[in-house]
Each structure stands twice: as structure tokens, then as C-alpha cells.
Nucleic acid binder design. Structure first.
Length: 287
DNA sequence: AGGATTTGACCGGC
DNA sequence: GCCGGTCAAATCCT
């Protein structure tokens, strides 16, 4: 019945490596060895990338494969105020919102979601890029409001990138960040933006993305023209994806300390997916 | 003074 | 009518 046994073992092995590397990274940072830590970041990124590919290969990130099963949110946030009804309602609302996003733009939903942990009293989610906050909204069923950011260079350079940041219900130190669109401004050269752009153009959908004549296309066309082909097993050149060198430190530290670092992505799907690791039981996913 | 943030209003989808 | 996403004027900050 378990057609993915091999993949599971490979994934377990890969994630165990990630866990070990995080510990090693923490040690290197304690020893104040930034160069060594950065080198480890590259390995970490590659390992996480492999894990994601393994999971994808097994179809674990497709909606169908998890049909009806609750999201990890429930387990992750047992203390989330509203209980089951609230969670369920929240999910409905999120799906509804995503449907709205797709149709309102007339284009498939191209987005990358990450879940990061923040340390108290530190500015959350410094991803090394400059964003300007343009709105805040109370979200139905959510304990915390959602903040809306767009690229600082939206007007000056026509950059379409936006992101939404929302605290996780159960843990005020966890943030869900959803990125929309790729940077088309000077920041596009920033390693974090570069990785985001790659995530927004996954290999499985690259063709579709180029063939699409969606309204989004004109905004990203020039950008894509300059893209280097991304082979399997992307090499981040020693740079940790999504995170600024400074942001990386606290995110990895705090994520490990908090027992979880989640990175999830989904493309063209009105559905949230998350990969979650847990220090004590990393593999309590629902298959 | 200029840029960033806040916040109420508006818009479109469902 | 409800809701999420965005706009834009007012306000704050440096």
C-alpha cells in the first residue's frame, strides 16, 4: 500500500541531515564563524530542496493526496483560540480568499508561502528586501490582523511584488508570509529575491508559465527573459534562500529553538500547503 | 521635507 | 451582504 516507502526513508534521512545541519549551524554561529555558517547554509538549502522534491515526487503536496485530512495547523496550534470550528472556518476563508485572488487577477495564483519564527523584540521577517506596508486587515477567524506589503519600488520601477504577513494563531512568534509576484526592480538581483523568483517559477510549471498569456505575463516577461535555467537540485551558491544574512540567523536559531521551521510552497492552487518539521517528531505528516 | 505607517473607505468576487 | 485586498488621505518619524 505504501508506494512511497523508499521516498519516505529518503525524506527522513534528508530531514535528519537538515536537523543535524541546523545544530551545526547553531554551533558555528555560537563560535562566531560566519563564513562557515554561510557555507552550511548552502548545504541546508540544498537539503531542504531535495526534501521538497522527494515529497513532491510522492505527490504529498498535491491536494488530492491529502484529501480531507486536516492541515498541520491544527496540531501546530492546539491552543488556537477558536477550536475546531474556528480552524475550519479559517480554512474556508483562506480558500475563498485565494479563489478571489485568482479570479480577481484573471491569472493563476502564483504564490510562495513560508512560515517563519521570530524572536521576541526583534523585527520579524527581515528578508533582506525592502517592503512598504500599505494595509492591515482583520481576518475572519484569525487572532491577529494580516499586514499587506508591497515592494518599495512599486511606483518608481513598477515592481509588482507583494507579500502578506500574518501571525500564526497559536504562536505569536510564528508568522505566515505569502509572497505574490516576483521582484522586477533593482532588488531582483538580491539573492533572496532571486530565490523567490525561482520558487515562483517552479520547473513543473515553467512551460505553462511561459506559454500563459495571463495578465501577469507582461509584468514578468522581461524578468523571465533574463532568467537562468534552473536545473534540478538548485544551488544557492552558499546563500540561504529567502533570508537575508542577518535575518537568517535569528530565523534558524529561533525556529530551531521553537521546534519548528516551516517552508511551504504552492502554485496555481487555491490551497495552502505547508511542510513542517518538528524537533521531536518531524514526520507526523498525514499521508 | 520626504518617506513610511496607519486606518477608514472603497472595490470586486462570491 | 460579507469578506479579503487595495487605495489614499492623515499622521508619524527621521
Amino acid at each position: 500500500m505504501d508506494v512511497c516507502g523508499g521516498e519516505k526513508r529518503a525524506l527522513a534521512s534528508e530531514l535528519a541531515q537538515v536537523q543535524a545541519m541546523v545544530r551545526e549551524l547553531e554551533a558555528r554561529m555560537d563560535q562566531d564563524l560566519p563564513a562557515a555558517a554561510r557555507e552550511l547554509c548552502g548545504e541546508l538549502a540544498s537539503s531542504v530542496d531535495r526534501s521538497i522534491r522527494i515529497a513532491r515526487a510522492c505527490g504529498w503536496d498535491s491536494p488530492g493526496s491529502r484529501d480531507g485530512s486536516p492541515r498541520s495547523d491544527g496540531a501546530q496550534h492546539p491552543a488556537a483560540g477558536g477550536g475546531g470550528n474556528s480552524q475550519s472556518k479559517r480554512r474556508q476563508v483562506e480558500r475563498s480568499a485565494l479563489r478571489a485572488f485568482v479570479s480577481s487577477k484573471g491569472t493563476p495564483c502564483v504564490r510562495t508561502q513560508v512560515r517563519v519564527a521570530a524572536v521576541q523584540d526583534m523585527a520579524p521577517l527581515d528578508d533582506g528586501l525592502s517592503w512598504r506596508k500599505y494595509g492591515k486587515k482583520d481576518i475572519l477567524g484569525a487572532m491577529y490582523p494580516r499586514a499587506y506589503f508591497r515592494c518599495t519600488h512599486r511606483h518608481s520601477q513598477g515592481c509588482p511584488a507583494t507579500k502578506h504577513v500574518q501571525r500564526a494563531d497559536g504562536d505569536p512568534l510564528l508568522y505566515d508570509v505569502v509572497y505574490h509576484g516576483a521582484h522586477a526592480c533593482a532588488q531582483a538581483a538580491h539573492p533572496a529575491a532571486e530565490h523567490l523568483r525561482r520558487q515562483l517559477q517552479p520547473e513543473g510549471h515553467a512551460d505553462a508559465g511561459q506559454e500563459q498569456s495571463s495578465p501577469l505575463a507582461p509584468e514578468t516577461e522581461g524578468l523571465q527573459a533574463g532568467l537562468e535555467p534552473m536545473g534540478a537540485g538548485a544551488d544557492f551558491g552558499g546563500y540561504c534562500p529567502l533570508l537575508s544574512p542577518t535575518g537568517l540567523e535569528w530565523q534558524l536559531r529561533s525556529s530551531y529553538a521553537a521546534g519548528g521551521l516551516g517552508v511551504g510552497m504552492d502554485y496555481y492552487e487555491p490551497h495552502f500547503e505547508e511542510f513542517y518539521t518538528n524537533a521531536t517528531d518531524p514526520f507526523q505528516w498525514e499521508y
